[in-house]
Measured scan of single mutants.
Amino acid sequence: VTLFVALYDYEARTEDDLSFHKGSKFQILNSSEGDWWEARSLTTGETGYIPSNYVAPV
């Protein structure tokens, strides 16, 4: 499992996005959609889309 960590805070703009804070960790579920990845937050357990340029591999 590849884990990613948030580099910045992000406020969701749609109900499909995940809001998160810098330092939040994610499991990436689908990275084939270009700049928006489907991810599960390891902090909240919620699933949604995150901007790929806001995260980096742990």
Rank of each mutant, 00 (worst) to 15 (best):
T2A: 11
T2W: 11
L7F: 03
K25D: 03
L3T: 09
T43R: 08
L29A: 05
Q27P: 01
E33A: 13
I28Q: 01
L29P: 04
D35M: 11
V55W: 02
T2H: 12
T44R: 02
I28C: 03
T47A: 07
H21T: 15
V55F: 10
T14D: 12
D17S: 14
V5I: 13
D35S: 09
L3P: 05
E46K: 12
Y10P: 00
W36F: 10
A12F: 02
S31L: 09
D9S: 07
S19N: 06
F26C: 04
S24G: 07
I28Y: 02
S19T: 09
K25V: 15
L29S: 05
E38L: 15
I50D: 00
L18I: 11
A39I: 03
L3Q: 08
E11G: 04
T44I: 02
A12P: 04
E38T: 11
R40E: 06
S31P: 10
L42T: 07
Y8L: 08
K25W: 15
V1F: 14
D16V: 13
F20T: 00
V55L: 12
D9A: 06
Y54A: 13
H21M: 12
Y10M: 02
A56P: 01
A12T: 04
N53G: 11
V1M: 13
N53L: 09
T14V: 07
G48T: 01
N53K: 12
N30G: 09
V55G: 01
P51M: 06
N53S: 14
E38R: 11
R13A: 11
S31I: 12
R13C: 14
E11C: 14
F26G: 00
R40P: 00
Y8T: 06
R13V: 13
A6K: 00
T47D: 04
D17Q: 15
D16T: 14
V5H: 05
P57R: 07
Y54M: 11
E33M: 14
E11D: 10
D35P: 10
V5E: 11
I50P: 00
F4Y: 15
A12Q: 06
P51S: 04
A12N: 05
T44A: 02
F20I: 03
W36M: 13
A39P: 00
E11K: 10
Y49S: 06
E11Y: 09
F20N: 00
K22G: 04
S19C: 06
S32K: 10
W37V: 06
D17M: 13
V1L: 13
A12H: 05
S32R: 10
S52L: 04
D9R: 03
Y54R: 06
T43H: 12
I28A: 02
S32I: 10
S41Y: 06
N53Q: 11
G34W: 09
G23A: 03
A39T: 01
V58W: 13
F26A: 00
Q27N: 06
E38W: 15
T43C: 13
N30S: 11
L42M: 11
T43K: 09
A6Q: 01
G34L: 11
Y8M: 09
A56Y: 09
S52W: 08
D35R: 07
G34A: 13
S41T: 04
I28V: 10
Y10R: 03
E15S: 14
T14C: 15
N53A: 14
E33N: 15
A39N: 00
L3G: 04
I28K: 04
G48W: 03
P51R: 07
S32H: 10
E46N: 08
G34C: 11
D17I: 11
D35I: 10
T14W: 14
S24E: 15
Q27S: 07
H21L: 14
D35G: 12
D9N: 07
F26Q: 00
G34S: 13
L18R: 01
A12C: 05
E33Q: 13
R13Q: 14
I28P: 03
L18F: 10
H21P: 09
D16G: 15
P51D: 05
L18T: 02
D35W: 09
S41V: 07
T44C: 04
D16A: 14
R40H: 09
F4E: 01
Y10Q: 01
G48K: 01
W37T: 02
E33H: 14
P57T: 05
L29Q: 05
Y8P: 00
S32W: 10
V58P: 03
A12V: 02
A56Q: 10
L29R: 04
S41I: 09
Y54Q: 05
T43N: 10
L29N: 05
S41K: 12
V58Y: 12
Q27G: 03
E38F: 15
F20P: 00
L7T: 04
N30D: 13
G45A: 04
Y49I: 09
S24R: 03
G45L: 06
S24W: 15
T44L: 03
G45I: 02
S31M: 15
E11S: 09
E11A: 10
A39C: 03
D9K: 04
R40W: 08
W37I: 06
E46V: 08
A12M: 04
I50C: 05
L7A: 03
E11N: 09
S19G: 07
T2R: 12
L7H: 02
T2D: 13
A6C: 03
L42E: 07
L3D: 07
Y49N: 07
Y10F: 09
D9L: 02
Y54D: 01
S32E: 11
A6R: 00
T2C: 15
Y8V: 06
F4G: 04
R40A: 06
V58L: 13
F4W: 15
G48R: 01
L3F: 12
L3V: 14
R40M: 12
F4M: 09
L42G: 02
W36S: 06
E11R: 08
G45T: 03
F26L: 09
A56C: 09
L29Y: 06
L29K: 05
G48E: 01
P51K: 06
F20D: 00
T14N: 14
R13F: 08
L18Q: 03
V58S: 07
V5Y: 12
S52N: 06
S32V: 10
G48I: 04
E46P: 01
P57M: 09
G48N: 01
F20E: 00
S52F: 07
L18V: 05
E33G: 14
T14L: 10
E33R: 15
T43P: 05
E38Q: 13
